Measured scan of single mutants.
Amino acid sequence: GKELVLALYDYQEKSPREVTMKKGDILTLLNSTNKDWWKVEVNDRQGFVPAAYVKKL
């Protein structure tokens, strides 16, 4: 099944490779191999968020 993460904080994208999320959002985790930036999918968009801003559910 898909792995989900919870947004712990708001995050505003700073580049086209990133995505914006709001605290409390549930996101689909696509890739967590990089310890600093995790790739997630939110609202049919894929991009990176800081790993410290999310936690695995």
Rank of each mutant, 00 (worst) to 15 (best):
L4C: 11
E3R: 11
V49E: 01
N34G: 09
V19E: 00
Y11E: 01
W38F: 07
K14N: 10
D44H: 12
G47R: 02
V5Y: 09
P16Q: 10
K23D: 02
K56V: 13
L30E: 03
T20K: 04
S15V: 05
K14R: 14
I26T: 07
K23R: 11
L6P: 00
P50G: 02
V5A: 12
E13H: 09
K22W: 09
V5S: 03
G47V: 04
L8I: 09
T20S: 15
G24P: 00
L29D: 00
V54P: 02
G47D: 01
V42L: 15
K56M: 12
L30M: 07
D10F: 04
F48A: 03
E13I: 06
L6Q: 11
L4Q: 10
K22P: 00
D25Y: 05
R17N: 14
V54C: 15
M21G: 00
L29Q: 00
N43F: 13
K35Q: 11
K14S: 10
E3M: 13
E18I: 04
A52Q: 13
I26M: 07
K23Y: 05
G47S: 02
E13F: 06
L8Y: 04
L6S: 05
E13C: 12
N34M: 09
V54M: 06
D36I: 14
A7T: 04
N43K: 14
K2Y: 12
I26K: 05
Y53M: 14
W38A: 03
L8R: 05
K2D: 08
R45Y: 05
L27D: 00
Y53Q: 07
G1F: 15
R45P: 00
F48Q: 03
K39E: 14
L57M: 10
S15W: 06
Q12P: 06
W38L: 05
R45D: 04
V40F: 01
Y11V: 02
D25S: 08
F48I: 07
L57N: 03
V49I: 10
L8E: 04
P50R: 03
A52L: 12
M21N: 01
E18C: 07
G24D: 06
L27F: 06
V54I: 08
V42G: 15
A7Y: 02
N34V: 05
R45N: 06
M21E: 00
Q46E: 12
E3A: 12
P50K: 04
G1P: 14
V42A: 15
K35Y: 08
V42Q: 15
K39F: 15
Q12M: 13
E3N: 11
W37I: 03
R17Q: 13
K22V: 10
L8W: 04
V49N: 01
Y11H: 04
V19A: 06
K39L: 15
K14W: 04
L6H: 04
K14E: 08
A7N: 01
Y9L: 10
G1C: 15
G47N: 01
V49P: 01
E18L: 05
V42N: 15
Q46K: 11
E41Q: 14
V5L: 12
P16L: 09
Y11R: 03
L57I: 15
V40G: 00
K56G: 06
G47A: 04
K23A: 13
K22Q: 10
G24L: 02
Y9Q: 14
S32W: 09
K35M: 11
P50T: 02
L29N: 01
N31K: 07
W38R: 01
R17V: 11
K35N: 13
A52V: 10
Q12I: 14
D25M: 14
D36G: 09
R45T: 07
N43L: 12
K55M: 13
V42T: 15
A52H: 13
F48S: 03
D10P: 06
N34I: 06
K14D: 06
D44Q: 12
K14I: 07
L8C: 08
T20M: 04
V19M: 12
L29M: 04
S15E: 08
K14Q: 15
W38I: 05
S15L: 09
E41W: 07
N43D: 14
K2C: 14
F48V: 08
I26S: 03
L27A: 08
I26P: 01
V5F: 06
R17D: 12
Y9P: 00
D36M: 14
K55L: 12
D44N: 13
P16N: 10
K55G: 09
E41A: 11
I26N: 03
G1W: 13
N34Y: 09
D10T: 06
V49M: 01
V54G: 01
N34L: 09
A52R: 15
V49F: 00
P50I: 01
L6F: 08
W37A: 02
T20W: 04
N43A: 13
S15D: 11
L6I: 15
F48K: 03
R17H: 14
T33N: 12
T28E: 13
L4H: 09
D10I: 02
L29H: 01
S15C: 11
A52C: 15
Y53K: 08
V42M: 14
G1D: 12
K55A: 13
K39P: 01
D36L: 13
G47Q: 02
D44F: 10
G1Y: 14
G1M: 13
D44L: 10
N43E: 12
E41G: 08
K22L: 09
V49L: 03
N31L: 09
L6N: 02
K2W: 12
N43R: 14
V5C: 13
T20P: 07
W38Q: 01
R45E: 05
G47Y: 05
V54K: 01
A52I: 11
N34K: 07
T33P: 04
E18Q: 10
I26H: 05
S15I: 05
L57W: 08
K39N: 07
G47K: 02
D44V: 07
Y11D: 00
K55C: 15
W38G: 00
K35S: 13
T28M: 12
T33L: 10
Y11W: 12
Y9G: 06
L27G: 13
M21S: 00
D25Q: 15
Q46T: 12
N31R: 07
T20V: 03
M21I: 14
Y53W: 08
S32R: 08
D36Q: 11
A52E: 11
Q46S: 12
A51K: 06
N31F: 07
V5K: 00
N31A: 10
V42P: 00
V19N: 04
D10M: 04
V40S: 00
D25T: 07
V49W: 01
L27I: 07
A7R: 01
Y53D: 05
W37Q: 03
E13Y: 05
N43W: 10
V19P: 01
V42Y: 11
P50Y: 02
V40Y: 01
A51E: 04
W38K: 01
V54R: 00
K55W: 08
W37R: 03
W37P: 00
S15N: 12
K39T: 08
E41L: 09
D36V: 13
R17C: 14
Y9T: 07
A7W: 02
D36Y: 15
N34Q: 10
D25C: 06
Q12L: 13
K56W: 08
Q12S: 12
V19L: 14
V49R: 00
V54W: 01
L29S: 02
D25G: 05
V42H: 15
K56N: 07
Q46I: 14
S15H: 12
V19Q: 03
T33G: 11
P50L: 03
R45W: 05
Y9W: 11
W37K: 03
Q46C: 11
T28V: 15
E3S: 11
E3W: 12
Y11I: 01
L4I: 09
K55T: 14
W38D: 00
D10V: 02
V19W: 04
P50Q: 02
L8T: 04
T20F: 04
N34D: 15
K2R: 14
E18Y: 05
D44Y: 09
E3L: 12
K39I: 15
V42R: 15
E18K: 04
K2E: 10
A51R: 12
M21Q: 02
Y11G: 00
S32L: 05
E3C: 15
L29Y: 01
L6Y: 10
W38H: 02
D10A: 06
K56E: 08
R17T: 11
V40K: 00
V49D: 01
T33I: 09
T28K: 11
